[in-house]
């Protein structure tokens, strides 16, 4: 990553543009579900323009790592996430169907190591879908989380319990 005064003037192609282009093109082809060459060409042109516009105007796309390690961590993250999503739903059903709802909710802090905006967005989204937690606010590196069953208000303990397993994977993908 270049660290000089020229960073504000994006070169061509802007950093991160090619990967964004590939992702958008895959989305285009999936939405059309046809291998027709005209559709692919039009899609290539449209997604090129979109990728250029977004990559040139925002820094958010620059830090994603497209390496085999990043891919492995993406898969590991997806697996952990799906397990946690099912656990979250079962925990929620247990509360919803219990005769008397006996919960102790509260708002706690979680500190994150992630630097990039997209990484933080992914972490916040993940926490919203894992058992008993909901992101209320984000200030700098602190996430404010509504926890349905507060067991600790200590930042370190809560961070490890909620973000720990995801953070290491997301850190490898997004930085």
């Amino acid at each position: 990553m270049p660290v000089n005064g020229q960073e504000n003037r994006p070169g061509f192609p802007p950093q991160g543009m090619v990967s964004l282009w590939v992702v958008l093109f895959v989305v285009w082809m999936a939405a059309n579900s046809t291998p027709a060459i005209e559709v692919a060409l039009l899609g290539a042109a449209v997604t090129f323009a979109l990728a250029y516009a977004f990559a040139a105007s925002s820094e958010a796309w620059r830090r994603i790592r497209w390496t085999p390690a990043g891919f492995y961590h993406f898969l590991a993250y997806t697996g952990t996430f799906l397990v946690e999503l099912v656990k979250a739903n079962l925990a929620m059903m247990r509360i919803v169907y219990s005769p008397r709802i006996d919960i102790r909710p509260g708002i706690v802090r979680v500190r994150t190591r992630l630097r990039s905006p997209i990484g933080r967005l992914a972490l916040a989204n993940t926490i919203a879908l894992t058992p008993g937690s909901l992101v209320l606010d984000l200030k700098d590196d602190v996430l404010y989380i509504h926890w349905i069953d507060v067991r600790s208000t200590d930042v370190e303990v809560v961070s490890a319990a909620m973000a720990g397993s995801f953070e290491e994977h997301l850190e490898q993908i997004f930085g």
Partner: peptide, 26 residues
């Protein structure tokens, strides 16, 4: 259905949002 029931049974807005988000996603 559980999400809908959660919206009715949970005690306050935040816990209702929690029930709604997770169960509707899955």
């Amino acid at each position: 259905f559980s999400a809908g029931l959660g919206l009715l049974r949970m005690p306050d807005a935040y816990t209702r949002i929690q029930a709604g988000t997770k169960a509707t996603t899955l």
